[in-house]
């Protein structure tokens, strides 16, 4: 059976997630320059998603095969974004670029 995760770990992750939400909101009010603001906001979002996947979704305690599936998901969506953007950014076919 799957490992039983102690509730105190859930509470700790929850507290970090709320703190990250407050942080990303606070940073957005600083109105950083466009690329920096986006990078900070997405880095925090990635960190939050990672916490949810590892602890709330138990991946940290799951089998290697689960890790492979989750990795495949990240890999494919990474391909989708990377290849799409490398095409658009280098060809300039969208009006307004």
């Amino acid at each position: 059976m799957a490992d039983v995760v102690a509730p105190r770990i859930y509470y700790r992750v929850f507290a970090i997630l709320l703190a990250c939400t407050a942080l990303t909101w606070w940073v957005s009010r600083l109105h950083l320059n466009s690329p920096l603001g986006v990078i900070v906001a997405l880095t925090i979002a990635l960190g939050k998603a990672l916490l949810v996947v590892l602890f709330f979704m138990h991946v940290r305690y799951s089998s290697r095969l689960t890790w492979v599936l989750v990795g495949a998901g990240v890999l494919w969506v990474g391909h989708l974004l990377l290849l799409t953007m490398s095409d658009y950014l280098t060809r300039g076919t969208v009006p307004g670029w």
Partner: peptide, 24 residues
């Protein structure tokens, strides 16, 4: 998890579309 992978790609299409137009 296999179902969630298809969901990631399902939402991923929208996120990719958003990224393209947000950049433009």
């Amino acid at each position: 998890w296999a179902f969630l992978l298809t969901e990631i790609m399902f939402f991923g299409g929208l996120f990719a579309g958003y990224t393209v137009y947000r950049t433009a």
